[in-house]
Amino acid sequence: MGVIVEQFPLYAQGFLQTLRICLFSAVGALVLGTILAGFRVSPVPPLRMVGSAWVTVFRNTPLAVVLFAVAFGLPELGVNGSYFYFGVIGLTFYTAAFVCEAVRSGINSVSAGQAEAARAIGLTFSQSLSLIVLPQALRTVVPPLGSVIIAMIKNSAIVGAFGVGGDLFANGVQLTSAQGYAAGAVLIGVLLGYLVLTIPGGILLGVLERKVSVAR
């Protein structure tokens, strides 16, 4: 445990970098996944095809492959950036597929009469989805979305191994390979860092779930 005390600044730096990766990816995945869920239930066939294709491709592709495809594919298209930038994009794209399916299940749980009533008063599909259906659907998807976000936090370790640098995983590797600390002690510190992210997140989601269940 001495390594955790001695190298606490390095662990703190890694924790903050991992937190940045998770925050940016979570926001991006929630926004993109909700848009894709709207595509999946859209009456426009091309939009449904885009949503279905996205979910099929990203849910059935390993995250490491997605990260390599983003890092080496985007520069070919003229999009350049740091590994942090590419890592966040890859994790966002991958997680958005799971967010999409969670939100879509919530949309399908809303009574069809709600959408019919919205159309009856002249609302368009996008208006009825954003104003009527989604606010009700999001109450039912807090538990699955919570599981997706917690899985995303754990997947951020793969982003770290991919070469972003400065995160918990990368700093743990640095301590064992470059500075010669025992791997077991170093990994305990890395584990504690991830637990600090996941356990409070799970508690917060549990509180939120209870609140929306009462409201429902």
Rank of each mutant, 00 (worst) to 15 (best):
V5G: 10
Q7M: 12
P9I: 04
P9D: 09
P9T: 00
L10P: 05
Y11E: 05
Y11K: 07
A12V: 13
G14P: 05
L19D: 07
R20F: 04
R20Q: 06
F24Q: 13
S25R: 04
A26M: 14
V27I: 09
L30W: 00
V31D: 11
L32N: 08
T34V: 01
T34R: 12
I35P: 08
L36R: 03
G38F: 04
F39C: 15
R40Y: 04
V41F: 10
S42C: 01
S42R: 09
P43F: 06
P46Q: 09
M49Q: 13
V50C: 12
V50Q: 11
T56W: 10
P62G: 14
A69W: 15
V70Q: 14
A71C: 09
F72H: 14
G73Y: 03
P75N: 10
P75S: 07
E76K: 15
G78K: 07
N80Y: 02
S82C: 07
F86Q: 06
F86K: 09
F86C: 03
V88K: 05
G90Q: 07
Y94M: 10
Y94V: 07
A97H: 01
A97V: 06
A97W: 00
V99G: 05
A102W: 01
A112K: 15
A117L: 06
A118M: 00
A118N: 00
L123N: 01
F125A: 04
F125H: 14
S130E: 01
L131D: 08
L134F: 01
Q136D: 09
T140W: 00
P144N: 02
G146N: 07
I149Q: 01
V159E: 03
G160E: 06
G166D: 04
D167Q: 03
L168K: 10
L168A: 07
L168Y: 02
L175M: 12
L175S: 08
T176L: 00
A178R: 15
G180N: 06
A182T: 12
A183T: 15
A185P: 03
V186D: 02
L187D: 03
L191D: 00
Y194F: 13
L197E: 10
T198K: 11
I199W: 03
I199C: 11
P200E: 12
G202L: 08
L205V: 14
L205E: 05
S213F: 03
A215Y: 14
A215C: 10
R216L: 15
R216G: 15
